[in-house]
Design a protein around this nucleic acid. Structure first.
Lengths: 363, 363
DNA sequence: ATTAGCACTCCAACAAAAAGAGTGCTAAAA
DNA sequence: TTTTAGCACTCTTTTTGTTGGAGTGCTAAT
């Protein structure tokens, strides 16, 4: 017992792992008898009980009430995810499913993320989340205008991350096709690479000067550009497969469920959490490790999608604290590998090796 | 009793209305005693009981069990919505809220619909739905290309409904800025106004011919255009405020709730329903009136957004069958009026009168 | 046609009892 | 010193029974 100060005995590890696995599968507290029957550790249930009592004392297990089985504590899950978990190998079927669905969606990042989170939800049977994080500083790398009618054109902006945004623009004074083309040029010369904060009055005035007689449209457009940039700042989050949560008994309490759904609706908390993360590997947040109040018996696992050193998106899984971490980690890794392939270049998808490291981040 | 064959007596109407109102508010079966105390109809509870028994026989009321109060049947709600409902006037506060939020979102239809459904959910305290219906035939009215790198440009398409879609395009053989500009011209000349089905091989060949030496890119782009058109065909549906459902006791049964959430996740059923609707007024679907299985104790109210005679979107409310129809109808009407203002022209919002007719459509 | 009165039904809530699962502890065995 | 069998104990879950109340339907009188 003294020598266990700095680590768990092999037997304790085996018991803890068995308990976590059993609880992940069944959701019920696990008793010594069950362990006895399902593990070969050549000792009696009484010994197991003793070990369990010690594991509880050490903080890895909890007892829902005086005479129930044991349930893994938050610390127990942490230890499990960090050291005990056995890597889950995706089946060829799953890999094929990923490839097929994502291949069909080669396109804008938004759609890829959405499809991926859907897929993640399907494969893991938990709730999937697709996130475009808030970013401190997006800028626009290219403007284009599309003339429609004398008082009506479309402003298209390509952002530094490659996303394309557009807005209809209506102006008071009629403009010509040539004018809106000149406008695009002017915008490209003065506003590219600037964040919302950097669009200052002098810059606006320069742009207006360049447009000469047609300066009146500039004000309207700048306002729209500004709004566009702030929109991009806001981030976005979409949820898929909420219905899957309901199959887990931890969410059969309506109050709890309502709180959780509320958090998913509000989006802010999770969006913040993901946007602030600096871990580019897989993030695993178990229960109260995250500041999001509601998560107490839930867990959030997410993987940022990084492009040129910048986090441009994330896919995640939300589920009960006792989720099947092995499967979730493998799924998110597989998916993010494929997404990386797609966005870095439109090269052929081949399901190759994307062992994206199994880094975990507690709190 | 004979003369009631073709209509309900005034007293029956009053009783029915009182029962529906009471049940909408409380969610509990309503008894004769309650009616006696809350309505001035100068008769005893025994008489009310008799009337209630007859209303039940006629199919307007139901009894959950032998000795409970009465609950409105589906037919009862239908009758209520069609003839008994009292128009609800939006408060100035609500009108102001609508104007402020929508004003801020002047932009693409998607965003307006999303904001509106959010708002509808907030105002009514039920779940809001924003829908872009499947449409038989979308075409593209204008193409534009944005050159980025020699093997990489962006294709922007403006659809016949004014929506803007874009796709990144990567090509094998390097192209110049001039080439992508010519490509846009070629696409505009050959593909505008065509639906996905109408893009035939001859047309493709003509386009390729026009591009001469750069024909190789045409194939890639056509595939993308095709995908883009089918995407537009698919329709879209976004849900907001699911958490609000949980406050109503009819959704405290996990099984029921799961089915409902499943329907909302799948989107297909509701999307079909809305896409196929030909009623441009407010549609009210109560319980099993819709083919969507799950709705049995739910109701869906939605209002198409029509532009140039075409349904370009819809906003809706999903809630318990006993929802506050008066409020829901008023809210959707108010919102759709404002949306119409915004999309028809960017004229100033003024919260003016949009009495969009109170048409109802039973199954 | 309406109403008072009453017996009847059914549900909901509570209480008590029984069943079960799992533990902790003790004393003996390895 | 560690392990184990055995058993009493605790706490939950399920079952069963009881009671109270709400609301109806019916009958007989108005």
């Amino acid at each position: 017992m003294n020598l266990e100060k700095r680590g768990l005995s092999e037997r304790k590890k085996q018991i803890l792992k068995a308990i976590v696995n059993a609880h992940i599968e069944g959701g019920e507290p696990v008793g010594s008898k069950y362990i006895l029957q399902n593990q070969q550790l050549g000792c009696s249930s009484a010994t197991i009980r003793n070990e369990m009592a010690e594991l509880e004392e050490m903080g890895y297990l909890e007892q829902p009430h005086a005479s129930a089985g044991r349930v893994p504590s938050e610390l127990g899950y942490r230890f499990y995810v960090d050291t005990l978990i056995e890597r889950y190998a995706m089946t060829t079927g799953e890999i094929a499913q990923i490839n097929n669905l994502l291949k069909a969606k080669i396109g804008e990042l938004d759609q890829i993320l959405l499809a991926a989170s859907h897929l993640a939800s399907n494969l893991t049977n938990y709730t999937g989340i697709a996130i475009k994080p808030r970013v401190r500083s997006v800028s626009i790398s290219k403007f284009e205008t599309i003339y429609l009618e004398p008082d009506h054109f479309i402003l298209v902006a390509v952002t530094s991350t490659g996303a394309v945004k557009s807005k209809h623009v209506r102006v008071e004074r009629a403009v010509t096709q040539a004018t809106v083309a000149r406008l695009a040029t002017a915008l490209n010369e003065h506003l590219t690479g600037l964040t919302a904060d950097e669009i200052t009055l002098p810059i606006i005035m320069e742009t207006e000067a360049q447009m000469g007689a047609d300066a009146s449209a500039v004000g309207t457009v700048i306002k729209i550009v500004y709004g566009l940039l702030s929109e991009l700042d806001e981030g976005e989050m979409r949820v898929s497969g909420i219905d899957r949560l309901l199959q887990y008994p931890e969410y059969s309490d309506v109050g709890q469920l309502q709180e959780l759904l509320g958090t998913l609706e509000k989006k802010d908390d999770i969006l913040d959490l993901v946007s602030r993360s600096e871990n580019e590997g897989i993030n695993v947040l178990i229960g109260s490790e995250s500041e999001v109040k509601v998560m107490n018996n839930s867990a959030l696992v997410f993987k940022p999608i990084v492009q040129n050193g910048k986090t441009v998106g994330a896919i995640g899984i939300l589920g009960p604290r006792r989720m099947d971490y092995a499967k979730v980690l493998a799924t998110l890794e597989g998916l993010s590998g494929n997404i990386a392939d797609i966005i870095h270049a439109n090269k052929q998808l081949n399901g190759g090796d994307h062992n994206g490291g199994n880094e975990n981040n507690g709190g």
